[in-house]
């Protein structure tokens, strides 16, 4: 009996306890959380849009400020990190720890690159154009929205780095695939949200309506 108990436990520990839908609990939790997070970003983006559709007097001239080229590079980096994230999930599923670590580091590296470029942009805005959190309503919504997204990226990086270091403890193998996949879902979501932000906050400003 103790054998049966043991397998039962190992399964439960990795969230593979048989469920009604066949979807592991952790994964369903993350999907539901992401639905919630959609509303979260939805409200923030809507707030930004409301004040862009009817900008208050004194709003900065955005076409002169926003730099699409550099944001495109950071967007590209973040999107490519999703590819590396998918490869990390694949690698841990194959029990290939070496490849898993490399892919996680690449994911995190690109995430850091994104953060660096975005921070440079913030720095640039503050010092070149005097655009701060309180200088105009665009500053308020812009920094709050992109700041919230940055916090999401930072949490993702901390989460992935935890897996990276944990992989040296010898406790990670193909059974950890679900855990990494759940982190991956989060990471992909943060990327997808950025595509929306990039479109709405940056690209739309250059469309003459």
């Amino acid at each position: 009996m103790s054998q049966a108990v043991a397998t039962h436990d190992t399964h439960e520990e990795h969230g593979e306890h048989p469920t009604c839908t066949g979807i592991p609990n952790k994964k369903m939790f993350m999907w539901a959380f992401l639905a919630s997070d959609c509303m979260f970003f939805g409200c923030l983006i809507a707030t930004h849009m409301v004040y862009r559709i009817s900008p208050p007097p004194g709003s900065p001239d955005l076409q002169g400020i926003l730099d699409i080229e550099i944001v495109s590079i950071s967007t590209f980096l973040l999107l490519m990190s999703s590819l590396m994230m998918a490869l990390s999930v694949h690698a841990i599923g194959k029990n290939n720890l070496k490849s898993f670590r490399r892919c996680i580091l690449a994911t995190v590296g690109m995430g850091m690159g994104f953060l660096l470029i975005q921070s440079y942009e913030w720095y640039h805005f503050v010092h070149e154009y005097d655009l701060t959190l309180t200088s105009s309503l665009f500053g308020s919504t812009f920094y709050t929205l992109t700041g919230t997204h940055k916090i999401h990226v930072i949490i993702g990086i901390i989460w992935l780095m935890t897996y990276y270091f944990y992989s040296f403890s010898g406790k990670m193998d193909h059974k950890s695939e679900l855990d990494v996949e759940v982190a991956g879902l989060y990471w992909h979501f943060v990327d997808i949200v950025w595509i929306v932000i990039f479109t709405v906050v940056f690209l739309l400003e250059f469309v003459d309506m």
């Binding site: 509303m39 979260f40 409200c43 707030t47 959190l133 309180t134 308020s140 709050t144 919230t148």
Partner: peptide, 21 residues
């Protein structure tokens, strides 16, 4: 709930960090 989370977060920014939502 995310709607009120954002509403409150913006209010917090107004009250604590001087924004103007």
């Amino acid at each position: 709930f995310p709607a009120i989370t954002i509403a409150l977060a913006c209010l917090m920014m107004d009250r604590l960090f001087g924004t103007g939502f």
